[in-house]
Every structure is written in C-alpha cells, then in structure tokens.
Design a protein around this nucleic acid. Structure first.
Length: 374
RNA sequence: CGGGAGAUGGCGGAGUGGUCAAUCGCAACCGACUGUAAAUCGGUAAAAUCGGAGGUUCAAAUCCUUCUCUCCCGA
C-alpha cells in the first residue's frame, strides 16, 4: 500500500488531498470545468441530498454519479449521517426527526414523507451512485453534549458501522479477489465529542471492524458553546493529533470538515490524508478570500507556511485596481480588479461568486502543493 | 375643470389623540462562517420635531381649516 496515493476506478488521489464539497451535486456557483481549472482533482458529494432531490435509483439507471455530473475523477460520498444530524439540531422539538438504533428517521422536506435512513440503505444509495470512496452512516454528536449522550452515540455509531460494513461486503462480491482500485473504499467515522476516552473507545471499536479509511467526525458547529469558545485552537489541534495517533499508519485518515488552510497544514503534520470543507467556497461567496502573505489583511501561519486574508467587501477595496492576489494566475486574478470583484459580490452577482470561488479553490490547490513541499 | 388618494430618516414603509423625538426593512460600516437550512447570520453607527401655515385639545405624526406638491380616475 502506497500511502502517497489512493487508487480508484476514476484515477488516483494524490495525498494529502483537499476535496471541495459538491453538496447538492454542484460545487456552488462554479462548473466542474471551473473546478478542474482551479486545480480540483476530487470532490465530495452528499448521498442524502442526491437521494432526496434526484434519487439514487435514477442515477444508477442514468449510468452513475460520475456520468451524471460529467466528472470522471474520484468522488467521495458522505453517508447522510451529518445531514440528518444537522436537520435534527435545527428542528429540535419536532418529534418526527429522531435517531434510534434502527437508523435516522426524519421528515423529507421535499414531500413531507417520513424517511428512514439506515446504515444499510445509506450503503445501498452509495453503491447506486457508484461512489469511489464511501462513508458508513454515522451518529454525530457535538463536542459539548452531555457525557451520557456522547457515550450512547458512540455505541450506536459502532453498531451502525458494523451493519454498514456487512452491507458493503454483501454488495461487493469481488472484494476478496481484487485489490484497491477495483472496488470502492469504505470509511467509518470516529465520534466521541471532546472526550479523549470516548474518542479512543470509538476508534478501537471501529478498528476491530477493519475499514479502509478512518474519519474524524463531529467537528462541532452551530452551537452556542463550541470547542472553539471553550478552549483555544490548542484543543482542536490536540484532539486531532490524539485521534490520528489512534489510527494505524496503513489506514487512510480523513479529517471531515477541516478546515482553515493552517489547520489543514497542521493536520497533515499529524497524519491526516484527506480533507473537505465548505470554507473556501462559502467564504468566497461571502467575500472572504485567501491570498499570499503580504497581499492582504491578517496573516495566518503554520510553521513555514503562511497566507493572508482579504475581506473584499470592505470599503478599503473600493478603488483597489490590483488583482486579488498578484502571485495568482487564476481566472479571477488575471481578469478582474479587486474593486470590480468587490462590486460584483456586494450586489450578490453570481459572476462575482464564481470568480471568488475559483480564486479560493485555486488557493487551496496551491496550498496543498505547498504542504507537500514541506 | 370635477372626483379620489397621498406627502414620515438616503430609499421603502409602519404608526389614525397620550405608552412616538417615532416600529421595521433596504442601503452603509464591521464581524462570523469549518462532513453547506448559508448569495447566510450577527453586530455597529448614522439619519425624520412626521410637506408649509393656522386651529381644536391638558396632550396631535394622528382631528379641523387652508396652502403647496405628487399620483389615479373622469371630462
């Protein structure tokens, strides 16, 4: 096994790798051609959104998710666990959205029907799509949930992982006959919130089940008390190193939802191979751009790596005729001024979102190259 | 010319006798964003004595008179 790359039917993934999120089947505001031009080599998409909005049976009949997207590079599918978790978090009090050991039960907002997502059905959906890297249905929990809640989530999470793995084996008859690259790889998600012992328990239980990829799950979001506010970046970094150390080096390690460029650099340092986050794309739409050091406002550092940040909507850039980043050759930097991009984004013009997204993804691509050079 | 409606902060627009030196939204400025409820969310600042004049009242942006202007309908 070569830890520098992952073999898939749709090409090899060079590690470490950053994969932008194509949540509803699209990297928001750009085309896959734009993504390719920005250096994107692999993407993440979410099974739940595809299942609910298009239907994986349809995708299967159509010829698979790669054909449907017009993207023939690797695709990692998320299980839907996080999406349901997110749904439950934001509809607290709605007794129709809940999790039991059977699976995730929730109201499909598209048709009002009760929907049950199980470890088995999530796996089936991902096979229907023809994913390259799959994720077992997991049971996320916020870092600041009660210990009892987190413990129960870890228990269910392991039960589900076991069931998902069995389903995966059932659907992969040639599994024992061929090697990596001939069948999709399967990842499970380590949970446990902000408790080291629970993380260790979760990791150990999942390691017994022998997955190809081990994911760090449950980066807390949208909570009044998140890890960030409870403690400084130190804890965030510490637990990612701690969990990475629990996973043998012959396994691929995927830090879900990470993160800021400097956090990715840190995580690579402590052993993580795969990353995905919404930050470069969402921030682009909000006018938050990543640039080389010396080109912007605040400087962010990790060891020898550093970069600046620009909040393009600020008055400061009103008359700025320079490119976003003078050292960047992306479409945005080679065609428009900061002043013009500022104008486009301030009036919510899709063309502005597109250029900003192209720039940020180009930055992330370069950043991953810089990390490899370290 | 007749009939009707209206005039409130940069803009839109609440408010029809006291609790209105005036709600709210937009625009402005600043922040946040981490397996996307996110072209979203939060904060800050600033700005109107409520078209002009007169009157009623203890009290009016709110009622009355009149003037100015705008819009709609009909000649």
């Amino acid at each position: 096994m070569n830890k520098n790359e992952i073999k898939t039917k749709h090409g090899n993934i060079n590690l470490p790798a950053f994969m932008p999120d194509a949540t509803y089947g699209s990297i928001k505001s750009i085309s896959f051609k734009d993504a390719t031009d920005s250096g994107v080599k692999e993407i993440v998409t979410t099974t739940m959104h595809i299942e609910q909005n298009i239907g994986s049976e349809f995708i299967k009949d159509f010829g698979g998710i790669h054909k449907f997207f017009g993207w023939n590079r690797p695709i990692l599918t998320d299980s839907g666990g996080w999406q349901v978790f997110s749904l439950i978090q934001r509809t607290k009090g709605n007794s129709k959205n809940f999790i039991t050991e059977a699976g995730c039960s929730f109201i499909d907002s598209n048709n009002g029907q009760q929907f049950l997502l199980t470890p088995e059905s999530s796996m089936q959906i991902q096979f229907n799509l023809g994913s390259d890297l799959m994720t077992v249905l997991d049971d996320p929990i916020l870092g600041d949930a009660s210990f009892a809640e987190r413990k129960e989530c870890v228990r269910i999470n392991t039960v589900w992982a076991k069931r998902a793995k069995q389903k995966y084996i059932d659907l992969t008859p040639t599994l024992s006959l061929k090697g990596e690259g001939d069948h999709p790889l399967l990842g499970s998600v380590i949970q446990g919130g902000n408790d080291y012992e629970l993380r260790k328990q979760s990791a150990n239980e999942l390691l017994e089940l022998d997955f190809d990829i081990y994911n760090f799950g449950g980066l807390p979001l949208h909570t009044p008390v998140s890890w960030k506010s409870e403690s400084e970046e130190g804890f965030f970094h510490d637990i990612l190193k701690y969990v990475s150390d629990l996973i043998p080096d012959n396994k691929y390690k995927y830090a879900m939802g990470v993160g800021q460029p400097t956090d990715i650099a840190y995580c690579v340092d402590v052993g993580w191979d795969l990353f995905d986050t919404v930050l470069p794309t969402r921030n682009a739409r909000h006018g938050y751009l990543y640039v080389s050091e010396g080109q912007g406002e605040d400087t962010k550092r990790y060891k020898k790596l550093s970069h600046d940040v620009i909040r393009i909507k600020k008055e400061l850039y009103e008359k700025d005729d320079r490119p976003i980043d003078e050292t960047c050759s992306c479409e945005a930097c080679s065609t428009v001024s900061r002043a013009y991009l500022r104008h486009l984004i301030r009036i919510n013009e899709p063309a502005g979102f597109r250029l900003a997204t192209i720039h940020n993804l180009t930055f992330y691509s370069k950043w991953m190259e810089d990390i490899k050079q370290q």
